[in-house]
Design a protein around this nucleic acid. Sequence first.
DNA 1: ACCTGAACACCGTTCAAGT
DNA 2: ACCTGAACACCGTTCAAGT
Lengths: 254, 254
Amino acid sequence: MTAATPDTPEAAPAPGSPAWWADRPGPRTAPRRGRPALDTDHIIATALRLVDEHGAPAFSLRTLADALGSGTATLYRHFAGKDEILAHLVDRVLGETDLSDLDALTTWQEVLTAMAHRFYDALRHHPHIVPLFMAQVPVGPNGLAQRERVLHALLAHGVPVGLAARAFAAVGHYVIGFAAQQHGPAAASPDTAPQLAAFYRQLDPATYPAITRAATALTSVPLVEEFRFGLGLLVTGLERHTPHTGKDPAGSRA
Amino acid sequence: MTAATPDTPEAAPAPGSPAWWADRPGPRTAPRRGRPALDTDHIIATALRLVDEHGAPAFSLRTLADALGSGTATLYRHFAGKDEILAHLVDRVLGETDLSDLDALTTWQEVLTAMAHRFYDALRHHPHIVPLFMAQVPVGPNGLAQRERVLHALLAHGVPVGLAARAFAAVGHYVIGFAAQQHGPAAASPDTAPQLAAFYRQLDPATYPAITRAATALTSVPLVEEFRFGLGLLVTGLERHTPHTGKDPAGSRA
DNA sequence: ACCTGAACACCGTTCAAGT
DNA sequence: ACCTGAACACCGTTCAAGT
């Protein structure tokens, strides 16, 4: 906050927002002396387990406190409220994605594709968390670390910096949108595609001719194949914007 | 439910799910005789206004009933519960997008681009609704009508049916992902991009060199421009998959 | 000093009592 | 027959009272 935004009251930044994360202490781990009754990491890990097992609607501070053998008031000694706990859940899920080997890949296309698939896998592992990714760019410590790694790898492969940033954003949006609609919490079964196809085919072909045609044609296309397809579109489109593909062993200016 | 899914209890389909919409009465408008104290459309319109004005967290059946001059119990005579009302909200927002002129466009590229921009505009008008698009494919009556129109237009321009379905899905996922992260309810200001850029630039360049480089390079890129960029990637990528572009007046085999 | 039971003002949902 | 006030079992959050 240097000088801009003069008349905004900005009473308190919303948990999960950039301004809020900016006020957090860094990635240091043990801020409290002695042994607090409850460990912050332990709280978040338990919360994630509860959401994974019983779904977000069943998650409450009371169930969390019960699982920890504590009371709800105790949670407020570690977090400002429920929203803050949820923001930490999002960042923890992002932290489960290992992108440390991204620099070893040989083309920027592989970097983007690997990043998309691993992010997608993390979201698939925690379908009930997906809605929490809505509504803001995840800029917690883990989210920042991942973003840094991907951008670094793209830049290392000669992708112009503006293109790298927009490519990261476009792929990220695609992955979140895909995971949300195909693996969201409302999907009781691990694979809703067959149900959706059945629903489309059951529609009246007279009123929905194109939908029913498409549904029949799409029978038995695995979800991961559809994911790969859309991702391939983005990568292919990006190749048109790069000075050279990055695959070519002979640099353009060597 | 013909024969499959033998051991699933499937007590009641979740509101908004395909199975749930399948049980809804069609788009007929006046199912009740006489004049009910509360009109269904009026309830949804009021609910949408409340969510738009005060945000989803502040929306409750009690505030809705108050705005209608009624009691919460009365709402249960029109809807099974809050989730059902929210599912109708999603479909109503989709209904605000006018796609009736899609057939007049001359290329499938224009069809996809127009569809994406109009869908995006609808979501921008109702940022608090965006999270509700998570977790399921919107298959309410309006959602189906839009899907039918777009698929029809794509097929009319010679796009193979399998490609049309996957193109629709990929673009839809991209739009939802973009709108969710850039215009979600947590974004108090109408344009969070400057805030995000400021946040990135304030980071320590030593620990986040790539992010800070990218943030500086991306200063003053309008959001709509970034949206257009990712959308262009998808359309460009799709052109590689089509037998002929549909723009070229001379067919590839004439 | 640190923790927390119990209360507060809500919430979605139900149902017996009203008309 | 239709509607709904009032209750039910929750929720996130707070704070005075405990140790």
